[in-house]
C-alpha cells in the first residue's frame, strides 16, 4: 500500500529570544490510506507541532527548517500559502484538544460549518451547503441537527461540541484527519463514545487518522500503528500489537510500565525518573540519556539512528537487541 503521508526528517524549530527551541527535530513516519496511526509521547514532546507542521499552521516564531512532508506526492513544506489553504480542511483536516476553545463563541455553529464548505467550493449555494452541514451533524450523532445548527457553541456540552468539531473536520471528506488529543478534555464515558464515533466514521469513509495523545490505552484501542515521540524525535514506531507487547526502546518500556493494567494488579505503578531535557538545550547524543537505565558512553556522544528491527518496526536506540541490565 502506498502511503498518503510521508514525513521525512521533519525539523520544526522555534526561534525565540532565549534561543532555538527544537520542538520537532528529525521526525520520520508514514501514514497509509485509511490507516490509524497513534502518535504518543509526554507533554512537550512535539506531537502537536508535528501535526501543525503537516497542516502548514506553525505560528511564528516557529518554522519548518528541514525535511519533507509528502502528501499524496506533493511536498507540503514547499507549498505556497494559497496551496496550503486549499489543502487544509479539504484534503487534510484537524481536530483540536479543547472543544470549549475550538469553536468561535460569537458565531453560530451553522456559520462555522457553512464557511468550511464554501472555503473549498465557492460555487455551492447557501442552501446546499446548509444541507451538507446538517447531514454531517446528523452523522456524528447530534439529534435535531436542523435546529441545533442555529445555536451558538456555548449552548452545546463539551462532548457535543467535540462532535461538532468532528463533523466540521469531515465536511469535505478529507483523506487524512489529524486528531490532536480530541478526547483529553472530555469525561471518560463521553471519551469512549467520541473515540468510537471517530473510529466508525473513518472506517466507513476510509479516512486515514493521525491520533495524537498521551494516553496509551486509547492508542492501543484504535491504532493500527504507533509512533512514540520523545523530545522532538520519534524514538520507536511499529505495528500496535507487537510494539505494545514488546516495547524495545527504554522510553517506550517506561511508558508501558506507567500504564495501569489488569495483569499487574496490586503492584505499584512504575514511573520514569527524571525530567525531559529542555528543548532549548538538548544534550549531545540521545535525548533520553539522563533518564535511561541502560545508558552507555555511546549514548552520550551520538544521536541514535532509526534501526530496522524487522516486522516494520523502527527503534532509535543503540542498545536495541541487548537485554535490559536489570
Amino acid at each position: 500500500m502506498k502511503p498518503i503521508l510521508q514525513i521525512e526528517n521533519l525539523q520544526t524549530h522555534f526561534f525565540t529570544k532565549a534561543g532555538v527551541v527544537k520542538a520537532v527535530d528529525g521526525v520520520s513516519f508514514d501514514i497509509n490510506a485509511g490507516e490509524v496511526v497513534g502518535l504518543v509521547g509526554e507533554s512537550g514532546s512535539g506531537k502537536s507541532i508535528t501535526g501543525f507542521s503537516v497542516m502548514g499552521l506553525v505560528d511564528a516564531p516557529g518554522k519548518i527548517v528541514g525535511g519533507r512532508i509528502m502528501f499524496q506526492g506533493e511536498d507540503i513544506a514547499a507549498m505556497s500559502p494559497q496551496q496550503l489553504q486549499s489543502l487544509r480542511g479539504n484534503r487534510i483536516s484537524m481536530i483540536f484538544q479543547d472543544p470549549m476553545m475550538t469553536l468561535n463563541p460569537v458565531l453560530r455553529v451553522e456559520t462555522q460549518m457553512v464557511e468550511a464548505i464554501k472555503a473549498h467550493d465557492s460555487m455551492i449555494s447557501k442552501s446546499e451547503a446548509r444541507a451538507r452541514a446538517r447531514d454531517a451533524l446528523g452523522l456524528v450523532g447530534i439529534s435535531a441537527p436542523e435546529e441545533r445548527m442555529r445555536a451558538y457553541p456555548h449552548q452545546f456540552s463539551g462532548g457535543m461540541r467535540q462532535r461538532v468539531s468532528i463533523a466540521i473536520a469531515m465536511l469535505n471528506r478529507p483523506d487524512l484527519i489529524i486528531a490532536d488529543e480530541p478526547t483529553t478534555a472530555l469525561d471518560v464515558t463521553i471519551q469512549g463514545q467520541v473515540i468510537h464515533e471517530m473510529q466508525r466514521l473513518c472506517e466507513v469513509t476510509k479516512t486515514a487518522l493521525l491520533w495524537i495523545t498521551h494516553d496509551l490505552a486509547v492508542v492501543a484501542g484504535i491504532a493500527d500503528r504507533i509512533c512514540v515521540m520523545y523530545a522532538g524525535r520519534v524514538v520507536e514506531q511499529g505495528p500496535i500489537a507487537s510494539t505494545i507487547s514488546q516495547p524495545l526502546h527504554p522510553y517506550t518500556r517506561g511508558l508501558m510500565g506507567s500504564v495501569p493494567s489488569q495483569n499487574r494488579r496490586g503492584q505499584p505503578l512504575q514511573q520514569i525518573d527524571g525530567m525531559v531535557p529542555s528543548l532549548l538545550n538538548l544534550p549531545s547524543g540521545c535525548a533520553f540519556q539522563n533518564r535511561c537505565a541502560m545508558v552507555s558512553d555511546k549514548c552520550l556522544s551520538e544521536i541514535p539512528e532509526p534501526i530496522d528491527v524487522g516486522e516494520q518496526r523502527l527503534v532509535r536506540c543503540v542498545n536495541v537487541g541487548q537485554e535490559p541490565a536489570s
Binding site: 500559502p81 489553504q85 483540536f96 472555503a119 468539531s165
Partner: peptide, 25 residues
C-alpha cells in the same frame, strides 16, 4: 485563540479569519 487556528485549519481565507472570526470578538 484555538478558534482562530481552527478556522485556518478549515481552510478559511485569511481575510475572512480577520474580518469575521477576529473582528467579531
Amino acid at each position: 485563540q484555538d478558534y482562530i487556528k481552527f478556522a485556518r485549519a478549515k481552510g478559511v481565507q485569511e481575510s475572512r479569519v480577520i474580518r469575521v472570526h477576529l473582528l467579531k470578538n
